[in-house]
Each structure stands twice: as structure tokens, then as C-alpha cells.
């Protein structure tokens, strides 16, 4: 199990397209992935409804936990996705 905390790069937060890209990647990874907003509870990162319901905004810190599969590579990929601004 590996984890890292990352700051959200997309201008409009983890909504719409960025949320879709993130949950697609988490679901495709084959690993169990959770995302947790600072002060919140961890939710299934492969669930777009659970992810957008967190109301994660630009500049928020979130913690990603990856369990199973090629953990480090999956974590790197997801952190990269979250720190990139997809709304540019």
C-alpha cells in the first residue's frame, strides 16, 4: 500500500472532465484506490459520483492511497493527473 498527498491543479477543481479522467484512470488501474480530501473520509476513487460529491476545489490537498497491482506506477500516474491543470 502506497500513499501520497497532492494539491489539485485544475482551475475548476476535481469536477467535470478532470474528475472523469481521474476516475477512469483509477478504475482502469486494477488497484484499489481511495481519494481523501483533507478533513474528509476516504472514498472509492473509481466512483465518479463519490469523487465529485467530495466537492474538491482547485488548490485543495487530497491524499491518494493505492493498494494492489503496480502500486507505485499507478500512484505516480494519478498524482500527475491531479496536479495537472486540465481546464486550461
Amino acid at each position: 500500500m502506497v500513499e501520497r498527498t497532492v494539491r489539485i491543479g485544475s482551475t475548476h477543481g476535481l469536477h467535470a472532465r478532470p474528475a472523469k479522467l481521474f476516475t477512469q484512470a483509477a478504475a482502469a488501474s486494477g488497484a484499489a484506490v481511495t481519494i481523501q480530501k483533507a478533513g474528509g473520509a476516504p472514498v472509492n476513487a473509481a466512483s465518479i459520483l463519490a469523487v465529485i460529491a467530495q466537492g474538491i476545489d482547485h488548490g485543495d490537498d487530497v491524499t491518494i492511497v493505492v493498494d494492489g497491482g503496480d502500486e507505485s506506477a499507478v500512484l505516480d500516474q494519478l498524482v500527475e493527473l491531479l496536479s495537472t491543470d486540465h481546464d486550461e
Binding site: A16, A19, K20, T23, Q24, A27, V43, N44, L49, A50
Partner: peptide
């Protein structure tokens, strides 16, 4: 529409 398709098969749902 892709996002909606994901919502229809959302694991939490």
C-alpha cells in the same frame, strides 16, 4: 456523455 456513462455504472451507486 462519457461522464454520464460512468455514472450509470458507478460502483458507489
Amino acid at each position: 456523455l462519457e461522464a454520464q456513462a460512468m455514472m450509470a455504472e458507478d460502483p458507489s451507486l
